[in-house]
């Protein structure tokens, strides 16, 4: 079973990169400040995480900073007690 980190990375690639977009995304790539995910389409990422890990992410924690890289997202999930 893939790690949380890789599951999130794979989702981000599938969800946000257009087919002709050859940008490389790593665990540290800035997603929101880097223009890959805008604050509008960030919602689908939140819904995915909530569904996948059966959690509720409080609005106060779903900040652009918390979602700005795969590593940040994994940290947020840890804070919300999501385990591998």
């Amino acid at each position: 079973m893939p790690s949380i980190k890789d599951t999130v990375l794979q989702y981000v690639k599938n969800e946000y990169l257009e087919s002709d977009d050859d940008r490389e995304i790593t665990y540290d790539t800035p997603l929101i400040s880097g223009g890959i995910v805008d604050s509008f389409s960030m919602v689908s990422l939140k819904v995915f995480l909530e569904t996948q890990y059966k959690i509720q992410i409080p609005d106060a924690k779903a900040s652009p900073e918390a979602f700005d890289s795969v590593n940040n997202i994994v940290n947020l999930l840890k804070e919300l007690n999501v385990k591998e």
């Binding site: 257009e18 509008f40 389409s41 919602v43 819904v47």
Partner: peptide, 10 residues
């Protein structure tokens, strides 16, 4: 209402 989005014309 909940919002969601899809890739451009995909």
């Amino acid at each position: 209402a909940q919002n969601d989005s899809f890739k451009h014309s995909d």
